[in-house]
Write a protein that binds this DNA or RNA. Structure first.
Lengths: 201, 201
DNA sequence: CTGATCATGTAAAAGGTTACATGATTGG
DNA sequence: CCAATCATGTAACCTTTTACATGATCAG
């Protein structure tokens, strides 16, 4: 069994409901969008492979003009493989945050631009936070409607915590940038080993 | 100019100090590790390309037994390219969190295993948090030693905020899992559209 | 009438990991 | 004496993005 994760994202969504590749893209965007994303270049070839392995079955519906609509359902075999994957420990994602990489090296040449960017980021995140809170509320009100609700709540709250942290970080960072010393500070001869003395002390 | 980001991570570190591929791996691990990671399979080929483009220069030192040590320095040309990149807007990373993907679909079959995992995650993060706080303190005490200190503080505080949020999320999620209804709840006919009614209301 | 949405898919290129090869020195 | 660290690199593989192709229908 291979460990391509796209297939498990698809199997997972199919375990909730049969759907097409297009449906998957849309509903995954809404259900998983905050922590999982897939592009069509992954989805369609993966569905093909899943069909070959008999992890899913396919019903085609003719339509005029549009391409045929292919609706996929998970098979018992697929469900078994999916549940086995759930029991495996999750691999830790490689961390890559280009914004932070730029900040570490001093960011944009113009400090007022840096501040403006953080303000925009803060506002964007405040809007997303409001959305997530609405979804959260709705799940609390409808806690009993689906066995997975507690898990859906947990994932949404991950988003709420993370975004709240981001907003607070933006606020603090804007403060730091506003009170930056006007004059450039002298550089020490060996900046990096200097930076990391703290870890050895 | 291409947009491979490994080259900018390398140029950035070289803008602080000349170093070898091996040094980069090590010092980037300490300086950037929390938000940026590179493997050797990327580092050495990228250094080669940077040399071809004359963004870096190389001094070789013979050593017996070990391979020759190649120390790279950033050139004026390289510095110009790097600064131009800093001024460009950062691309947003694709979100992928396998742990959350598993949680969304109910996670491991055994709930006590789920709780145990979250407890371990919480403890790991508490240790990392303590480390980050130490580095933070050190930078506050040595604020004047390097012109980039405010930016280094900002990146570290990003980590502090994010990890604190993670710890709080672990705590809350463990609570939710401990109070899970013992009996499985009835499934509604169309779970996904049901899930997302909230967004349309 | 124009842009979004519906709907499928492919191919080439880029990006990234992993395992391998080599082998001396150093610290516990 | 064993494991880690020093130190460079390659090759095969896997993963992911992007651009392309096609074209109807629907809402404003």
């Amino acid at each position: 069994m291979d460990k391509n994760r796209t297939q498990f994202a698809i199997l997972g969504m199919l375990s909730l409901q049969p759907m097409s590749g297009y449906d998957f893209r849309k509903s995954a965007g809404q259900c998983l969008g905050y922590f999982w994303q897939e592009s069509y270049g992954q989805i369609y070839p993966t569905l093909k492979k899943l069909l070959e392995k008999k992890y899913v079955s396919r019903q085609s519906r003719r339509s005029k003009g549009k391409p045929d609509r292919h609706v996929y359902s998970i098979t018992d075999k697929g469900l078994k493989v999916f549940r086995a994957w759930l029991d495996l420990p999750a691999t830790v994602e490689k961390k890559r945050n280009e914004m932070l990489l730029k900040v570490f090296f001093g960011g944009k040449s113009d400090v007022s631009e840096q501040i403006k960017e953080l303000e925009t980021l803060k506002e964007t995140n405040e809007m997303v936070l409001a959305e997530l809170k609405e979804i959260d509320d709705w799940h609390v009100r409808n806690y009993d409607h689906h066995a997975l609700t507690p898990y859906w709540l947990i994932t949404i709250r991950f988003g709420i915590h993370r975004i709240s942290a981001m907003i607070e970080w933006c606020r603090e960072s804007i403060e730091i940038l506003r009170h930056l010393p006007k004059e450039a500070v002298a550089s020490v001869p060996d900046p990096i080993s200097f930076y990391f003395k703290s870890r050895k002390e």
